[in-house]
C-alpha cells in the first residue's frame, strides 16, 4: 500500500474542527470521491474531531490517502484524554456521557466503511476510520 499524502491538524479549539473539515474535504475530493461520499466523510470527521475536542480535551487529526489495489482515505482522531470506559455503550445510538446527542460514534461508523476504536482509560483514545473508493459507484 502506497501512501500518497499525509496531513495532520491539531485540535486545540473549536475553530480547528472547521480547519480539519476543510483539509479532509480537499483530500477526499483529491482521492476522487463523489459529492455524497465527500459529504459522508466530512460529516463523520466533524463528529469525531468534535469528540476529540469535547471529550479528549484536544488532540490530533491525521489523514492519509491510501493507494494500492483500492484507493481510499484513512483518518485517525487521537487524544490523550480520559479514554472511553464502555466502548459498547459509546457505540449505542443515543448514548452520551456528555452534552452530545449520542449520534457521533455510531453515526460516523455508518457513514464510513471501516472504524477501529482503541481506547484505554486514563491514557486516551484513537478512532481510525477508512472509506474506500468504489469506481462502479462513481
Amino acid at each position: 500500500m502506497t501512501i500518497l499524502d499525509v496531513a495532520e491538524i491539531a485540535i486545540v479549539n473549536e475553530q480547528d474542527i472547521v480547519v480539519a473539515r476543510k483539509g479532509i474535504r480537499e483530500a477526499a475530493v483529491g482521492v476522487g470521491f463523489g459529492l455524497t461520499d465527500v459529504t459522508r466523510i466530512v460529516t463523520a470527521a466533524s463528529e469525531l474531531s468534535r469528540n476529540v475536542y469535547i471529550y479528549g480535551g484536544g488532540g490530533l487529526v491525521t489523514w492519509r490517502v491510501l493507494l494500492g489495489d483500492r484507493r481510499g482515505l484513512e483518518i485517525a482522531f487521537s487524544d490523550d484524554g480520559p479514554g472511553i470506559e464502555d466502548l459498547d455503550k459509546a457505540m449505542q445510538p443515543g448514548y452520551t456521557s456528555g452534552r452530545g446527542m449520542g449520534m457521533g460514534m455510531p453515526g460516523a461508523k455508518r457513514l464510513m466503511d471501516e472504524m477501529v476504536v482503541e481506547s484505554a482509560v486514563g491514557v486516551g483514545t484513537t478512532v481510525t476510520v477508512r472509506k474506500w473508493l468504489l469506481h462502479r459507484y462513481e
Binding site: L35, T39, M103, P106
Partner: peptide
C-alpha cells in the same frame, strides 16, 4: 448529499 448524510447519521 447533505440529506443523505444527515439521514444515515441518524438525525
Amino acid at each position: 448529499a447533505v440529506a443523505v448524510t444527515t439521514t444515515q447519521l441518524g438525525l
